[in-house]
Design a binder for these strands. Structure first.
Lengths: 203, 203
DNA sequence: GTGCTGGGTGTGAGCGTTCACTCACGTATA
DNA sequence: TATACGTGAGTGAACGCTCACACCCAGCAC
């Protein structure tokens, strides 16, 4: 709750612009009721603009929903990659990656929730245009874990499984925050999450 | 892949009935493209019946999607509760609960995927009709963990957090199986999942 | 047996509504 | 004057759902 996004700060657009207000309104509605259930009329009304204005900035509702998803998807990938690069030992990499996730989530919780809740909708569209690894936070995490296993830092075992389990610790906690089961900012639990992730990796 | 559900076995209905075929067809389509994106015409076509027949068995598309969600939701709650009851120590409870999840998932993977992918859509409808704990697998797991913390079997710490992290290990792995990142039946990873869950709980 | 009845089940053209999207038009800034 | 931005009534298409009709078959009287 420390750094809450105002209604003006955009996802793709500069803060204060009409495009930013459209993105913010769409984001909230998409999170609350799902992309398909939200109408363009509602987005327009919630943005305080007309429906036509919406189509000045995005060619379609689908393009709007996709652009916002891949904005955070790409951001996550970049920050996870940077976090992994800034540490040497796997424990420190894990801590840095958890810190990156938590920071991005708390910085723009609605956008992060949107990513979490719609991943299965947009992932099929992802690897078509880009190389399978770059731009995908999961693939980057998996690469880090594979390396650590290869170098004997982590016990042998299916890296894909370790990746899923480690990410699950953080992402399910975020989900439970959406459901109201976990309270407060994710950042308040960063230390516990990091310890849990490391425990999973070493198990 | 051992015990794959045939197209005839129902979710709510007896195998081989029209209702069961409708449910199976709807389930596959809902998983593949999302509830809202699937039309009643498509469900009817995929079931091999007319659209009208669909409304002989369910009053609405929404009722169909809800009934199937709560069928597995209730089943998960019951089996998790039973699993927790059959063991004394928290490690054994954890193993039994993981085993229950894995078994239910592999028994009807499409239905389990559906539950996983649509939880955030239907959960708001859940606690209105029932008591908040019974019938909710997450609440039951949280109860088990709270007890274990209280009795000194697990280190002190936020039980809600431990619950999310432990469930995340299993559920994110299931998600990654949907994404094609984890291969084979969940059962093949049961031992690794159980160890990871226990490691998280003790962290 | 035959004939009648009634409930359960399946059909598909059709209904009213709502949706994503368009476009002719206004306005502001350079 | 030209370009960008904003407007909102309007459009065709597609949606969830209905309904008049047909069929099947068990139960029962004769």
């Amino acid at each position: 709750m420390l750094t809450e996004k105002t209604e003006q700060s955009g996802v793709t657009a500069a803060p204060g612009t009409t495009k930013a207000r459209i993105e913010r309104a769409a984001l909230s509605l998409f999170c609350a009721r799902g992309v398909d259930a939200v109408t363009t009329r509602e987005i327009a009304a919630a943005s305080g603009v007309s429906e036509g204005a919406l189509y000045r900035h995005y060619p379609s509702k689908d393009a709007l929903s996709q652009a916002m998803f891949f904005a955070i998807h790409k951001r996550l990938a970049e920050e996870v990659e940077a976090a992994a690069a800034e540490a040497a030992k796997i424990e420190d990499k894990a801590r840095a990656i958890v810190a990156a996730y938590v920071r991005i989530a708390d910085e723009d919780w609605t956008l992060f929730s949107y990513h979490l809740l719609t991943t299965h909708r947009f992932l099929p569209y992802a690897d078509k245009s880009e190389s399978p690894k770059s731009g995908n936070p999961v693939a980057i995490v998996e690469g880090v874990i594979m390396d650590a296993v290869k170098h004997g830092e982590l016990p042998q075992g299916d890296a894909a499984l370790k990746t899923a389990a480690a990410l699950g610790v953080v992402l399910q906690t975020a989900l439970h925050k959406i459901y109201g089961r976990v309270k407060g900012a994710l950042g308040a639990h960063e230390e516990a999450l990091a310890r849990a992730v490391i425990a999973v990796l070493k198990s």
